[in-house]
Design a protein around this nucleic acid. Structure first.
Lengths: 255, 255
DNA sequence: CGAAGCAATTAACCACGATCAAGTTAATTC
DNA sequence: GAATTAACTTGATCGTGGTTAATTGCTTCG
């Protein structure tokens, strides 16, 4: 189903040491720029970030590649520079449940790293992607002296918990239709411009099947509900693009 | 449905200052003993814990009382000293979904506290309970100078995330029957002695309806499945006590 | 002691959403 | 541009689990 499992990895450290001591500076500058994408690194100075260099490696991964499976040991976490990643459970019967779909700027795997347990989900690229892998060793060392850095990490974990709680809530007390509408509205909020009124369009970030699974629905059921919403005049489907003629009406259809 | 919402609270600080400077010492000793129940405080010395005193208040709450509703502002977190608490979502139609059932030694509300957002769940006592409320102010101050303390908090959050992921997994790819069996096995593990073989008995921590909701089932469905399992000879139900004649057979029935 | 209230069980019925099976686009590859 | 595969849609059918409602203990309380 997927390409063979051979990520083309190369550590930033290696790249730097190939050139020489002097050439380290621009490398650090790049690392600095890249890591700053994650909120937890934003408060750090370039000199502090430089200390991460030896623990960071860059990963370029084509679409469909599996970054890790459930059960694999975890020795760091990932930060997405570009592309798209899905996290998913896979049951013994082969069923798959997508837990999250992540984009550039987001990170994953921290929680597991802090627990010294193997991964509970698998991660797979949904598009050609480049990511950074930050090794747990360096990371832990850097945490020890820096409570502010710790605070950032805590903030990140708390936010993730919050999101997951939202998922649990919608899985357990919202219908499929409600979950889809909620998804569209949220997607519009994050992608679209502020305070959109009236007509807006959303491009789905990946295949409908994957999004369906993310919402705990089968592809078929997802398709049917999209059809219902179309018939109700709430949306117009055009391939991967969803037009919403009147977003406030869609919002209103939730209650 | 419930008693009026008037928790009988009293700050440990107030209690201490009623007596006098000298009487503060034993109070701190008690606080020390109580807080140490939570893993995040275990690494702290009594002198450090003493600094929390002004931010901690003790809450005695009768069964059925609501500690907070969704939407209430959060200015600290709770540690259960005795009793039992449920966390639950409530939908606009009045449906309730129990997210977790917590016992003495466990804490809740940290994640929300770190995010400066209102509660997303409500908390209600399932039995007469006593808890400590630790104010966010003191807590944050104490974190600033103590990376090890931060590490403990991170560990706690990571663990909670892990648990929640387990819930999401079971909600989305296990059947009701599987979830119940899984629950019984986990309950046996935490309550029962190590490596039990053969016949064991479990006393359910609270009403079947509440546990059903925790497992994303209705009370009726829960009852039916318990019946099925009984007919299959896998369990024997005796009120709130579940006897398991052969626990390895129950385990085996999962695949 | 009986009334009231709550927890639990049981049964009949129903619906949401899954499964299975074709069929249709749409995107790749040769 | 035909061939192949993946993504999506549509329809028929089925089943898990929800809904409703009646019944039976089991407390609690007057």
């Amino acid at each position: 189903m997927n390409q063979p499992d051979t990520p083309c990895q190369e550590t930033l450290h290696t790249t730097a040491s190939c050139t020489d001591g002097v050439a380290l500076a621009p490398e650090v500058g790049r690392l600095c720029r890249l890591l700053r994408q994650a909120s937890m690194f934003q408060s750090l100075g370039c000199d502090e970030i430089a200390r991460f260099a030896r623990g960071v490696r860059e990963i370029k991964s084509p679409k469909g590649e599996i970054l890790f499976h459930r059960g694999d040991p975890c020795n760091g976490f990932h930060l997405i520079l570009s592309g798209q990643i899905k996290l998913a459970f896979t049951s013994s019967e082969g069923n798959e449940k997508v837990v999250d779909i992540l984009r550039a700027g987001q990170s994953f795997g921290e929680a597991v790293m802090f627990m010294d347990k193997p991964y509970v989900v698998m991660a797979q690229t949904l598009a050609d992607s480049t990511l950074l892998h930050i090794g747990k060793q360096v990371f832990f060392e850097e945490m020890n002296g820096d409570p502010l850095f710790c605070r950032k990490i805590i903030a990140g974990l708390a936010q993730r918990l919050h999101r997951l709680m939202g998922d649990v809530e919608s899985y357990s007390l919202r219908s499929g239709r409600e979950r889809i509408i909620g998804y569209l509205l949220r997607e519009e909020e994050t992608i679209g411009e502020a305070a959109s009124v009236g007509r807006v369009s959303i491009r789905l970030p990946t295949s409908k099947g994957t999004i369906a699974s993310r919402l705990n629905l089968t592809q078929e059921h997802f398709s049917r509900i999209l059809n219902e919403l179309t018939n109700a005049g709430l949306i117009e489907v055009e391939g991967r693009t969803i037009h919403i003629p009147d977003i406030s009406r869609l919002r209103g259809s939730l209650d």
